[in-house]
């Protein structure tokens, strides 16, 4: 499988979960395990461009597929080392406290914005219903996603006013 643009060839036991393969075999610990029961979304990565909970998928099911984790996200943007607008906006809008949910929250938001480039507050809340945050109360996450949406639409990483 390809992970964050790098090809990997490994033998895996069929029962290995994708998230364990990423973290333990490939050392990509940016993706977190929260609930381990497909509820919290902390383990969200993209497989062939769609958000999935990697604690509820076997590594072998991703054989031959393209996986994108939070660690490869910035490289998909301008290739010059800048953060992806979602990462930048989460930082600027104070959309994290402990940060545990953040990798999954950002990967789920990326999918949300691919489907709906200009979501309302309600649409962001609804679109992220598969991701739980125990710290922030979600308010700033919604702001960050909407701010990133503006930047992505403009194709720029420059800082932007948070929409009211």
């Amino acid at each position: 499988m390809t992970v964050d643009g790098t090809d990997y060839t490994d033998d895996v036991e069929p029962r290995t979960l994708l998230v364990h393969h990423l973290r333990e075999a490939l050392g990509l610990t940016g993706t977190n395990v929260g609930c381990d029961t497909s509820n919290c979304g902390a383990c969200t990565v993209h497989v062939d461009g769609q958000s999935v909970k990697s604690c509820t998928m076997l590594a072998i099911q991703a054989d031959g597929r393209e996986v994108l984790t939070i660690q490869g996200l910035a490289d998909t943007w301008d290739g010059e080392g800048s953060l992806h607008p979602l990462q930048q906006a989460f930082h600027e809008a104070h959309a994290l406290q402990c940060g545990y949910c953040t990798p999954g929250m950002i990967m789920a938001s990326l999918d949300l914005l691919a489907e709906n480039p200009d979501p309302s507050d309600d649409e962001v809340r609804h679109g992220l219903e598969g991701n739980l945050c125990r710290c922030t109360g979600y308010q700033n996450i919604v702001k960050a996603v909407r701010a990133a949406a503006v930047q992505i639409r403009q194709g720029s990483t420059k800082s932007q006013e948070v929409p009211a």
């Binding site: 969200t44 999935v52 909970k53 998928m57 999918d111 949300l112 598969g130």
Partner: peptide, 9 residues
């Protein structure tokens, strides 16, 4: 059904 990630799988 479920959430976006669940519906993808």
């Amino acid at each position: 059904v479920g959430d976006a990630q669940v519906r993808h799988r």
